[in-house]
Design a protein around this nucleic acid. Structure first.
Lengths: 104, 104
DNA sequence: GGGAGTGTACGACCCGCATCGAACAGTCGG
DNA sequence: CCGACTGTTCGATGCGGGTCGTACACTCCC
């Protein structure tokens, strides 16, 4: 046994607007979302992102992104791979994700 | 003479996305924007908003909103009246304001 | 001119958050 | 079974942002 505890997710439907704005209002998390959006689903492990923070902080940021309904995670061997919740999040906050990914 | 110094404004065009998200990611400022959106332009003075902070903090929040290109201010006698920059801001960040004003 | 009203500037305080290092848990491959 | 790798958790730290009180500037009206 000894399964790893599944990460706690929050569906975008239950996310207050201010939580979403707050989650996206951080440079590191914004970068994570953008980089994740540019990758195929379930291909990026947490440590594979180009952000200037150590893994402890990184783990924290992913926790915030999960709580904001932006990211879904799944265990894949020793790694934890990620997926951007495009459709669900966009249905809850139409256009917000598009705005974030619109570069500039 | 002794004109009052005109408040410093930033046009939405020059506002980075993260600045806008950060400005809207605060409960007090979110309330200010919403309340302002529900009023006719140039009718609300800074002190006329129903927020649980004193005027020093209030002044700070309006400074942030100006810097984010969300609010325009004009001196009207002893008061300083406000206007939500709907069109300009929406052109810069399409849909974001709508999202904020969509209540829920 | 004086007083009331409005908003800004300044300094101080404080709480929260982002960060880190280290220790731990789980997984896989040799 | 042991070591390398990945990510979480914990406690500690530092700093930035939100808040306040006070003092100040400006405007209007009496």
């Amino acid at each position: 046994m000894t399964h790893r505890a599944a990460p706690e997710h929050t569906h975008p439907d239950k996310v207050p607007l201010i939580t979403a704005l707050d989650a996206l209002g951080d440079p590191v998390r914004l970068q994570l979302v953008r980089e994740l959006a540019a990758s195929r689903e379930w291909t990026r492990s947490c440590g594979s992102f180009d952000v200037p923070v150590r893994k402890a902080a990184l783990s924290h940021h992913f926790s915030v992104l999960r709580a904001a309904g932006l990211v879904e995670q799944r265990d894949d061997g020793p790694k934890r791979v990620n997926r951007l919740r495009r459709e669900e999040f966009d249905e809850r906050f139409p256009g917000l994700l598009a705005l974030v990914l619109r570069g500039d």
